[in-house]
Write a protein that binds this DNA or RNA. Structure first.
Lengths: 192, 192
DNA sequence: GTTCAACCGGACAACGCTGTCCGCTAGTAG
DNA sequence: CTACTAGCGGACAGCGTTGTCCGGTTGAAC
């Protein structure tokens, strides 16, 4: 009796399995980091290992599917005409753990086309926001999207290794620290 | 012939093995992160697994030995009466990868007494520097050591996942970004 | 009702890491 | 020289993860 089938929904599952896997992966990456075991994803999704590897042949394709949705959230925020950089960053903070996993993905898959595409999208979102903030005079004129990307990396990183309890506080402190470096230059000196 | 002894320095090794292990661990933690396999440390040190575990029963005791020296370097910088925060941070940047491993250690061993001690020493160093910079008016008056610790965490973190080639550039950009948030408040406004 | 193909779940082989165990060697004492 | 002991190197067992493989199940076509 090498097999003990308990339930097998057959081909009926449709895209359900795929979606369950993505949802499970988001949670697992969220609290185990990008390196979390994929077997945990299958288990959490209530799906066999086979289905996992059939839908997503490797870690990257699974991760790309997950982050595709997260980046969609960011794009949604940026597309609201009066959203601010703070709104965007708040979104990043809310997704902090997944965001860190995204960074790991971008690093790990630096030479993978699918991953590069994600990076491009994020940069575009940030660029939109920075341009808007700049023309509103809410940030210094020489602030670049790269600066903000760097800030986001740092923010997401520090939140990752912050114990859950103190995380909101750390997020606030870190963001207020970084926010200062974005600030417009104040009165350039009392005019001679 | 279950054993094929090639070389065995016997008890003659004295503290040499211990030192070799610490040096090897610094390198291995440096480019494999805190989670790097301990077997790699033994191999790098040219020492048997047995000797590794005899000297350092667990990962934490090995890591503590490594970082003890690194923190010593920081303390040395801070003890020079005219060293600045920039000098300290430069040291951290130079040790970036190991610094990130240190953070991981501090997180991983949050409830370990040996680790807590290391954390305390780092905070003390930072506090010294912040106090000095503050009274020299080189930073805002309300900058705290905790702020700087946070900045260091972020800096070390971002350097960790930066590909080697671009690391010096990233370090410079990140530090200049963070430096801005330490700056003293400028002319408080042209006086009404 | 029967056939078929798509899809499923979980067993399992391969692999890498940890931590232990043990036979061996280099100095030291007498 | 012999007896002894501290310390050494590396084999290996145990364990967890990855990725494959295959018998089993389901709905659709006819």
């Amino acid at each position: 009796m090498p097999q003990t089938p308990k339930a097998n929904r057959g081909p009926s599952a449709g895209p359900a399995n795929r979606l369950a896997l993505i949802a499970a992966a988001r949670e697992v990456f969220g609290d185990g980091g990008y390196a979390a075991p994929l077997s945990a994803v299958a288990k959490r999704a209530g799906v066999g290992q086979g289905s996992l590897y059939r839908h997503f042949p490797d870690r990257i394709s699974l991760a790309v599917a997950v982050f595709d949705e997260n980046i969609g959230d960011l794009e949604r925020v940026a597309s609201l005409p009066d959203s601010t950089l703070d709104d965007l960053l708040q979104e990043v903070i809310d997704q902090a753990l997944v965001s860190k996993a995204l960074i790991d993905l971008i690093v790990a898959g630096a030479d993978d086309e699918r991953v590069a595409h994600l990076g491009t999208r994020v940069l575009a979102v940030v660029d939109t926001m920075v341009t808007r903030e700049r023309s509103a005079g809410r940030v210094r004129a020489d602030l670049t999207a790269d600066d903000v990307m760097l800030a986001i990396s740092m923010l997401a990183g520090v939140l990752t290794w912050t114990p859950g309890a103190t995380r909101p506080d750390t997020a606030a402190r870190a963001w207020s620290l970084l926010r200062r470096s974005f600030a417009p230059a104040p009165a350039p000196s009392p005019a001679p």
